[in-house]
């Protein structure tokens, strides 16, 4: 069993025991939906890639289900600003992943972090910096790697390189899935750590209302509603 599969199983068990609710709540998912998506990713990984044309194919578990999940999370984004941030973070994460692929040393042993995780971390950091939320991080983690793959496909086509583009081709262990999960975990850990270091949330006026962190004093102040580092005390 690979790290990716083990990660999915361990995460699934944690959700089953109700330990991942923090993340799930903020992703607008309930336990059943989360497990359903993860089972889909696992099962879809074993189904052959679906061809999308010459040298282009897509995997159900590695790309289609994560993309559906990302779109669902996007549709549940709290504000327009969060949606804009998600899109921007995705484009930036995709650019970051593509450039990292070109700039980093080519042998895994010379990279500080293994290629399986480096893209997730890059997408996660960029997504957190620009997305500022678990939702935006997750979307950017998934879409960023897919965009980087699409860019590589275009470059290959332009340079007449016969390498195919297989979106999420490695299924549950593809960089797409690893990146999405790493990005959201990174956002969660960094958010919680930041809050712990500063001794609790600075946004005392905010509270959890109808599945959303909102400014309880003034609901129109959109700026503060997106930082999910804030936590109900």
């Amino acid at each position: 069993m690979s790290v990716g599969l083990t990660l999915l199983v361990v995460t699934g068990i944690l959700f089953l025991f109700g330990l991942g609710h923090n993340i799930l709540d903020r992703m607008r998912l309930n336990d059943k939906a989360a497990l359903f998506f993860m089972a889909g990713i696992l099962v879809g990984s074993f189904i052959p890639n679906i061809p999308l044309g010459n040298r282009v194919s897509i995997n159900i578990g590695g790309a289609i289900i994560p993309l559906v999940l990302a779109i669902y999370v996007f549709s549940k984004a709290g504000t327009t600003k969060e949606r804009i941030r998600s899109v921007l973070a995705s484009i930036l994460a995709g650019t970051g992943v593509y450039i990292a692929g070109r700039l980093l040393p080519h042998e895994p042993e010379t990279m500080m972090v293994d290629p399986n995780y480096v893209y997730g971390i890059i997408a996660g950091i960029i997504a957190y910096l620009f997305g500022r939320s678990r939702r935006a991080s997750f979307i950017a983690g998934i879409v960023g790697v897919l965009l980087a793959d699409a860019a590589q496909g275009i470059v290959n086509y332009a340079n007449n390189i016969s390498a195919p583009v297989r979106f999420g081709g490695a299924g549950a262990v593809d960089a797409v899935v690893i990146s999405g999960f790493l990005a959201v975990i990174l956002a969660e850990v960094v958010g919680e750590l930041r809050e712990k270091i500063q001794g609790g949330t600075k946004k005392k006026q905010m509270g959890f209302h109808d599945g959303e962190f909102v400014n309880l004093v003034d609901f129109d102040t959109e700026e503060e509603t997106e930082d999910e580092g804030a936590k109900e005390k």
Partner: peptide
């Protein structure tokens, strides 16, 4: 014999997809 070019840091990420495809089939 799938190509994983260019020979850069993404090569192992792409060959991972080939390895998985091989295992699947």
């Amino acid at each position: 014999k799938t190509s994983h070019d260019p020979h850069d840091a993404g090569a192992y990420r792409r060959s991972r997809q080939t390895a998985m495809e091989l295992i699947r089939k």
